[in-house]
Design a protein around this nucleic acid. Structure first.
Length: 291
DNA sequence: CACTTCCCCTGCAAGC
DNA sequence: TGCTTGCAGGGGAAGT
């Protein structure tokens, strides 16, 4: 499940395959809510455009194009961006969760889940966007235009501060974890890293947000940054569907302390990790370490 | 406005 | 073994 670290790892890996190249053809699957811009229009808008930069805000990737329009990409739950070329003859085969990993020999054949395929003027590798569950999104934004999906985002989570958390939590009685998942407060934290950061900060997920002290906001801000940065370093978490753009697994799942460890021993105090449901999301914490 | 619930989708695991 | 059912979850819409 791509959150900020997985999206950032993807951005870094795919950047050199995208920036500076000119799109010569666009292939898509049929219209669906995956395409916030209809496939036909998307193809027309993108063809002939050169990619000037690839940036990220929260979980969104933003390809800035040479005519000052932008292509917004969201990986949703199972989205994968990757490259493929006939020359490198990489075969991408299905693994758990329908994820693709490179294996053996042979050219990649776009399957029914490969919704966007870009080819370029240099005829080198293609860039593909595959998404089994179609929770991902593709949106083209005209020059000078904007979209609430971007404008309503809070600051990127890598830049979180204690002050931001303290301000955002005043007067909010919702659970602190729910507030962390609110992309309008902080952009990029999802279910895994919310649980992991709250463990590191020793704060219970269901605590009323407004009950957090200044000190706790400081611990939480530090924890969010530390957890996200460490995950980026290790290539992200490969827990269900996510694989890196080269097809290999990230390694952060090996360092997680609470996420998807219900019933297992806390690595600090050996208490059993508890699983509850908060805001329709599974939530994991240590009842002894987190208060 | 704040907060909660529901729903989009598909593959996989569990249960019978 | 083969079928059915339930579950996972980002984020936006709809409901309270």
């Amino acid at each position: 499940m791509p959150e900020l670290p997985e999206v950032e790892v993807t951005r870094r890996r795919i950047e050199s395959s995208l920036v500076g190249r000119t799109i010569t053809s666009v292939r898509t699957t049929k219209a669906s809510y995956f395409f916030l811009t209809p496939p036909r229009e998307l193809a027309a808008r993108l063809t002939g455009r050169r990619v000037a930069a690839l940036t990220r805000h929260g979980k969104y990737l933003i390809a800035e194009l040479d005519d000052a329009s932008r292509l917004l990409l969201h990986l949703g739950m199972t989205g994968q961006l990757f490259t493929a070329s006939a020359r490198s003859v990489r075969l991408l085969t299905s693994t758990r969760g329908g994820a693709l990993t490179p294996e053996a020999q042979g050219a990649f054949e776009p399957d029914a889940h490969t919704h966007l395929m870009l080819t370029f003027d240099d005829a080198a590798e293609d860039v593909l966007f595959r998404d089994v569950r179609k929770f991902g999104k593709v949106l083209w934004i005209a020059r000078g235009a904007n979209d609430p999906r971007l404008t309503k985002l809070g600051p990127d989570a890598l830049g979180v501060t204690a002050g931001l958390l303290h301000d955002a939590t005043r007067g909010r009685k919702a659970a602190i974890k729910t507030v962390l998942l609110d992309q309008g407060v902080l952009a990029g934290v999802g279910n895994i890293y919310a649980d992991e950061a709250l463990f590191r900060a020793a704060i219970r997920p269901k605590r009323a947000a407004k009950s957090l002290t200044r000190k706790e906001c400081e611990r939480l801000a530090e924890a969010i940054r530390a957890v996200l940065e460490r995950s980026i370093e290790t290539g992200g978490s490969s827990i269900s569907d996510y694989v890196q753009p080269d097809g290999s697994d990230g390694a952060y799942q090996n360092e997680r302390k609470v996420y998807a460890r219900a019933g297992e021993a806390c690595l600090t105090c050996a208490s059993k990790i508890v699983r509850i449901v908060l805001g329709a999301r599974s939530t994991h914490y240590c009842p002894k370490c987190q208060r």
